[in-house]
Design a protein around this nucleic acid. Structure first.
Lengths: 159, 159
DNA sequence: ATGTCTGCAAATCCTTTGCATTTTA
DNA sequence: TAAAATGCAAAGGATTTGCAGACAT
């Protein structure tokens, strides 16, 4: 991520098997173990069209035996490994998404109803090079755009 | 914020009395009450050179009687009023900073030691207009850049 | 075989909420 | 004086930690 890639369409390759393959490859590189829970989680993340909460991942990846704690721990490990990106948001909640270096993008979140839409591309090359010139390395970033979605704007309009 | 302002130097006007004045003005517009705790908090925020946690604000604004809960509640109100921007970060923590429309900027955070440096400007005009074209209004954004600061990079270098 | 991962239980910690009282406008 | 803000006490809730057993390599 965060190497200044551009991609102006709305496609991102969810569900493509290579996303999982890439993740597994990186895991092997880092000597992480490829377990059934982790494979299930990666599958869920690869199918997702937006960042997911740990609970959502747990619900979708769960065959009934998967523990939420395991989800949290695996997400933590995957995050540290750069395979997953965590998006901290308000009220202590976080969302997680597979990192897709070639399809880096961000999202708009409706402050009122929580709706999330994807936005194309990312313009942070300049600001990251500023960070680099301050001596920082190994850069990543998170960005969340907040707004009021059209639906919510309508509702408050005829209020 | 987030109207695409640019400002490439590293100055931001902390401590300038107008920052507080502006905040008070906005508070009056929104019929918020200007109380002693709030004035103290605004002063602390106006002096800050980086986003502060509620605890930090509490510690610095506290004359001993100020309750942390009040800090949280006031920050919440100021955030909703667009006077303060909350930066949610990992582990459920948040930092708060005075909104300065004319001096919008972001920060790099060292993943290892937590050091924070300011970065000049912000390039998010394009992505916000993308959000606008999706029907979202009243846009704001948070962005945090993570990296390894030069000091920490050094330390791990001779490890 | 051994270091990693998982499950279960319990703890953390930041943040939020309830309610009676004080304060601002 | 009516609405909003504060203080204190207690709750909330997402995330973390400890530890023993299970598993991947």
């Amino acid at each position: 991520m965060s190497q200044g890639h551009r991609h102006d369409d709305d496609c991102c390759g969810e569900g493509s098997p290579d996303r999982i393959g890439n993740a597994l490859l990186k895991m092997k590189e880092k000597a992480m173990r490829i377990t059934k829970p982790r494979k299930a989680m990666l599958k869920v993340l690869a199918m997702a069209t937006r960042p997911l909460s740990a609970e959502e991942i747990h619900a979708q990846a769960g065959d009934g035996t998967l523990d939420l704690v395991t989800v949290y721990r695996s997400l933590g490990a995957l995050d540290e490994a750069g395979i997953v990106q965590r998006h901290p948001l308000e009220r202590g909640r976080s969302l997680y998404a597979l990192v897709s270096p070639n399809h880096h993008h961000h999202h708009v979140i409706c402050r009122r109803c929580g709706r999330i839409d994807r936005l194309p591309g990312c313009d942070n090359a300049r600001i990251e090079s500023a960070a680099r010139s301050k001596g920082y390395s190994d850069l990543t970033h998170i960005m969340e755009i907040y707004g009021i979605c059209p639906d919510c704007a309508n509702h408050s309009a005829h209020a």
